Amino acid sequence: MAPPLIELAGATKRFPSGSGSVHTAVRDLDLTVGEGEFVAVVGPTGCGKSTTLSLVSGLQPASAGMVRVNGADVRSIPDGVGYMFQTDAVMPWRSVLDNVASGPRFRGVRKAEARARAADWIERVGLKGFEKYYPHQLSGGMRKRVALAQTLVTSPRILLMDEPFSALDVQTRALMQDELLRLWAGSDAAVIFVTHDLDEAIALADRVVVMTASPATVKDVFEVPLPRPRAVEELRLTEEFMGLYRQVWESLRTEVDKARERGAGNAA
């Protein structure tokens, strides 16, 4: 069996707080993700889901434990990582074409080749004809397509996605979910997808990881045995989907309740 592409073992991250104490965001976190595997991470608000992505990406070092990518300890940003944030990372002063070409250009690819790659991905995400437009001329869904093309144009081995579709309306979000699955299929990229939307997690992933209330650690892992390819909206109507939803929600609900009780206590 091939070793996992991503491996966290006992990973812990502590931050200094404003009061001089130490805040533990994640604690003793164990998680593996293999090549070509799509893993969704759900948990209460503020439990440390985004911190987990930061550890894998090398943007934050672990305070304790092990974080490895492709068999090597993560000490800086690993090669082959694509990161899609909740907020669009598009540059408003650049056209769609130049935004998507920026990743290859930063990696030393010549301008003509970078633009050719960008044009190919712009077409793949359904924005052919909008190459010369600027971000302020695009809808929210179109900007997300630009961000997706920006992320995929470098052919990442690992996709880290931090609630990338949360700001979209319901219909556009469903379209982007289908688009993501279509573009990811056959790429062999490992995906960690953080979301608050349990429907989204089950519809997209091979496994759903439920994290505890802060400090976060893995509580449960649920396999998603739904066949691929998937049409997200059709999938949500099936008995298999609804049965799995009830199982995952039962695990997640208790952690959401704990987080809410702690919040009420702190407010008091």
Rank of each mutant, 00 (worst) to 15 (best):
E35D: 06
P78M: 11
A167F: 05
L181P: 05
V209F: 01
K49H: 09
S95R: 11
P3G: 07
P61G: 05
V42I: 07
Q150A: 03
Q137L: 04
D188Y: 09
V22N: 02
R157D: 13
V210G: 11
E179A: 07
L198R: 02
R260G: 01
T238E: 08
E131P: 04
A2M: 11
P44K: 11
G34N: 14
T154D: 12
A167E: 02
V109M: 10
M176V: 10
V170T: 13
G43R: 00
R68K: 14
A119Q: 03
E131K: 07
F106H: 10
K49M: 10
E35P: 06
V125G: 02
M211W: 05
I192H: 06
L159F: 04
P4V: 10
R145Q: 10
W249C: 05
L5G: 05
R173V: 00
E35G: 07
L127G: 08
P229G: 04
S50R: 09
E223W: 00
G82K: 01
K132R: 13
F106W: 08
E7A: 15
V100K: 10
P4C: 10
P78L: 10
H196Y: 12
N266M: 12
M1G: 14
V208M: 05
A101I: 00
V74D: 07
G18P: 11
R173C: 01
L148M: 14
D169A: 09
Q137Y: 00
R262I: 02
W121H: 05
A259L: 11
L183I: 06
T151W: 02
Q137N: 03
L127V: 06
V96I: 11
M1A: 13
P61V: 04
Y133V: 03
T51V: 11
D162Q: 02
I202E: 03
A11C: 03
T217R: 15
F15D: 06
L252W: 04
L5E: 08
S17D: 13
V248M: 01
M211K: 04
A264P: 00
G20C: 07
A40H: 11
A118H: 03
